[in-house]
Design a protein around this nucleic acid. Structure first.
Lengths: 338, 338
DNA sequence: GTGAAAGCGCTAACAG
DNA sequence: CTGTTAGCGCTTTCAC
């Protein structure tokens, strides 16, 4: 009994389902996309056919026709950084719940391969875009604006955002940490920073504020991005000879801070008497290590959620508004290291 | 001077470029995809027009027509885990270099929302797929095989892989750690494991081997996935009273191990004399903490690279072969905690 | 080396 | 509530 050619290599398409259910292709489309506009019986019959044939709608074709890809592209430097990992998680979750798929791209810290990357992403016609704070060159910026899609930039408060923004001022973070140290009577400061634009901004903000307050910078080290514990240890080892008196150290990441603390203790430095240390990021490590150390907390997860909501609001048709540019608050969590 | 309508909201398409360059659309397509088949002069003229108009080819349309999306979908449980973060990085890099974009999906550890997720991904017609070890139900498995695309499963050696495989046997890892401890004369064992399938497999492998070797399990704790340092500390705090004699602890992750060690030292336990600890993952923390602790190293980055190469080979037209299923080696890195 | 015709599989828009 | 028509923007295929 031959029966109908099962397992035909040709994938089943909407016309196959329509034929099987005895309806027009458009009706199948409606059952999938706007079930309310189809009678219950018809819908049931169509669904049965979809199930039986194992139909998986071709979203590529649908997207071309409807001019909506139901896809959002996101560019972040890395996901090795807990902050970005968390941010991407919440961003992705929020969008998936709304029926959007996220196309993630990792740009790295090194070469700003933005132009090619942005081009490749835009070619897939995402309905919206998330960018991690970066100074886009003129060409990239033009492509971005001509795409006519909602764009949210995160992580940094750009002077001149393309569209929406969820970030904070890294210089201010550094300044706040300097003020925190000064309030504790510190006058000798040191920094260890990863060599990435935002980390350097925080470090400069710290140094400027420290100097303006009459303090002195006794040492500063810049390590390769992304940050590692080992880099923190090495930097601390180099700085050690300069720590001849009570010193306050700001690290651009909790990983560096943990490394610095580890190395400092190994050499018998008393924390926080001789060396006070503040990190950045509030990674789990900063609170779970023994003893816990002081750090700057920034709402990474919340940033992802807000960015997603901004995009979704626009995708739902709402117009741009003033409140589309927000500062994410940060705060210093004081723990045993200061 | 009005000039041609600049900034027209309609995005520029291939016909616009063709008209501007005085050629047929097909020629523009060739300049982009198969430049060798176009004369140098024509190509130059077309490229100038592309540049001037800011043309970004619509890959959705191209994909529909060519039936190749130049996109690879990947499903991993999380990227908060350094192993997966690294794996995703190398996988993504390798594919991007070959001109493929990776569409990443995070499935989480909790509810296996596989069916819906797989359906959504397959709807975008990826050219290939990466799956993180999971037992797919019959429906998912059918969709997967009927997609007729290369699939690589990672992280776990499935009994019955769908197609290609790059993983290792988690039970064997646990057994190897037990053997390692036994060789050091241990007879009392304990475990702390995250509640995820693979972690539990490693833990069971450890316990079985330990018992078979005549040892005894004095305590075992299961914590929520994903692992955290704090969970390791809490679990250790619970286990402490049972550590009345020389004990060997296996943690399903370095995060748990670090937490356990931190807590144990805080309570004055001597490591490794009273308590020996082995983690899993070789996160930077295990080697950079002071003192460093013993762990199991698995080549995460290499797994991502191999998975990518497997897929690329198939995408290049090569047939399936025996060597498409490989075991990733693992090894125990002995450090101060054992 | 270049062009013309014919779709890819779906949905918007309009009828009925 | 359901169907018909006409594309979406590209590439395949076949001519020239």
């Amino acid at each position: 009994m031959p029966g109908p050619a099962r397992n035909a290599r040709a994938p089943v398409k909407i016309t196959d389902v329509a034929a099987a259910a005895g309806v027009a292709p458009m009706t199948v489309s409606r059952v999938i996309n706007t079930p309310d506009r189809v009678s219950a019986e018809t819908a049931a019959r169509v669904r049965e056919a979809i199930e039986r044939l194992g139909y998986v709608p071709n979203l590529i074709a649908g997207g071309l026709s409807s001019r909506r890809s139901r896809m959002v592209a996101a560019i972040v430097p890395t996901i090795a950084h807990p902050m970005f990992a968390g941010l991407v998680q919440t961003f992705t979750d929020a969008l998936r719940q709304a029926g959007y798929q996220v196309m993630l791209s990792l740009s790295g810290y090194e070469e700003p391969e933005q132009p090619g990357l942005i081009r490749a992403l835009l070619g897939r016609r995402p309905d919206a875009l998330l960018l991690t704070g970066a100074d886009h060159d003129a060409g990239a910026r033009q492509m971005l604006t001509e795409a006519h899609i909602p764009i949210v930039e995160i992580w940094d408060v750009s002077k001149d955002p393309i569209d929406m923004l969820v970030g904070f001022d890294h210089t201010q973070v550094g300044a706040a940490v300097a003020a925190f140290f000064r309030a504790k009577g510190h006058t000798r400061f040191a920094t260890v920073s990863a060599n990435d634009p935002r980390a350097l901004e925080r470090t400069e903000g710290f140094q400027d504020a420290a100097l303006r307050g009459g303090g002195q910078i006794i040492a500063s080290r810049v390590t390769a991005a992304p940050s590692t514990i080992m880099a923190g240890r090495s930097a601390m080892a180099e700085i050690l000879p300069m720590v001849t008196d009570r010193t306050a150290l700001f690290c651009s990441s909790d990983l560096l801070a943990f490394g610095a603390l580890t190395e400092a203790r190994l050499h018998g430095l008393r924390v926080p008497d001789q060396l006070a240390v503040c990190g950045f990021g509030n990674f789990e490590l900063s609170g779970a290590a023994e003893p816990p150390f002081t750090t700057v907390h920034v709402e990474g997860a919340e940033t992802g959620r807000m960015a997603a909501n901004f995009l979704l609001r626009r995708l739902a048709g709402e117009p741009a508004r003033d409140t589309d540019r927000v500062q994410v608050p940060f705060r210093i969590l004081e723990r045993g290291s200061t």
